[in-house]
């Protein structure tokens, strides 16, 4: 089976072009297949064409991956412009467009941002999915209710420390969110992904120390699963999926017309993942709006 890759993370493409990729299939889902690379121990993703670009991700020209004869443990090899999965799947990279996550800078004019964040908050309140950070009025179980309660309590504690500008205590609170939530990417992790990229924007008023991000990444290795851990690791270096970058760009400089579809797309991710990420964005942006001005980096 030969499949064309439509687009791919520039670093992933570069890795394939410059050296051989050697690994195995880590996990198989309907829309994604995760590959574990034995050279750098990282997870890489093959995504169907309904999904957006992302770090370590190749988007291929198939609407669903369920028909691919690929199973967990199958060997994966890559060289040059081809990635070979199992014994019969060949993914050709030759025509793949390279993609890279470029976060927008924190805007000089914060009025648009302030308005957009307020709009997003209303939208998530009204249309965000429950079961994670957003508590359902009728949770399916005691477990769900307790999870949402703990998520909110810990996110609030983190938010307070961020407002105080205390990186060290903020990181301690952030770690308490890692792995919290029943899903494949627990809600606490998703929230932190949204939060991290806010603090990775250039000219962000309230800087967080490198230690904050390091601590989140280090703790994620133990406290959450591998798939979520790599997402957090990438987010901690400012790399997230395309739809999240687009949303952040619309928030900082977009009109309401531009913001709405970007917001709908993110909130539509996963079960409650998109909502949880959006709430992380809101939290981070609100803390920075409260601080006001660009206090971290001198303007040129």
């Amino acid at each position: 089976m030969r499949i064309q890759a439509l687009s791919g993370d520039a670093d992933f493409c570069k890795k394939l072009a410059s050296s051989s990729f050697h690994g195995f299939v880590h996990s198989v889902f309907e829309r994604t297949i995760n590959l574990k690379c034995l050279d750098d121990n990282e997870l890489y993703t093959i995504a169907c064409n309904k999904l957006d670009n992302g770090p370590n991700t190749l988007v291929i020209d198939l609407p669903s991956l369920s028909g691919m004869e690929v199973a967990e443990g199958d060997p994966v090899y890559g060289k040059g412009d081809e990635l070979i999965v199992g014994s019969g799947v060949f993914i050709c990279m030759r025509q793949a467009t390279k993609w890279e996550a470029h976060l927008p800078s924190y805007p000089c004019d914060i009025d648009v941002l302030r308005e957009n964040v307020a709009f997003m908050k209303q939208y998530v309140d009204a249309k965000g999915k429950t079961g994670g950070m957003k508590m359902s009025s009728r949770p399916a179980s005691l477990f769900e209710r307790e999870t949402s309660r703990m998520l909110n309590e810990r996110a609030e504690a983190l938010s307070i420390e961020l407002a105080k500008g205390n990186s060290e205590s903020a990181s301690e609170q952030a770690v308490r969110l890692v792995g919290l939530g029943p899903g494949l990417t627990p809600s606490g992790d998703d929230f932190l992904v949204g939060l991290c990229i806010v603090y990775k924007m250039q000219n962000i008023p309230c800087c967080l120390s490198c230690r904050f991000f390091e601590k989140v990444v280090e703790s994620s290795r133990e406290l959450t699963n591998e798939i979520s851990s790599i997402t957090l690791k990438k987010a901690a270096s400012g790399k997230v999926r395309e739809s999240l970058v687009d949303l952040l760009r619309c928030l900082t400089q977009g009109s309401r017309e531009e913001l709405l579809p970007a917001l709908e797309k993110v909130v539509g991710i996963g079960s409650s993942s998109g909502t949880d990420m959006a709430l992380g964005l809101i939290c981070g942006l609100e803390r920075n709006l409260e601080a006001g001005g660009n206090v971290c980096l001198p303007k040129l």
Partner: peptide, 12 residues
């Protein structure tokens, strides 16, 4: 309950 076996979920 069907959830990943993370420390935080065990706390819940």
């Amino acid at each position: 309950v069907i959830a990943m076996g993370t420390e935080m979920n065990k706390e819940v």
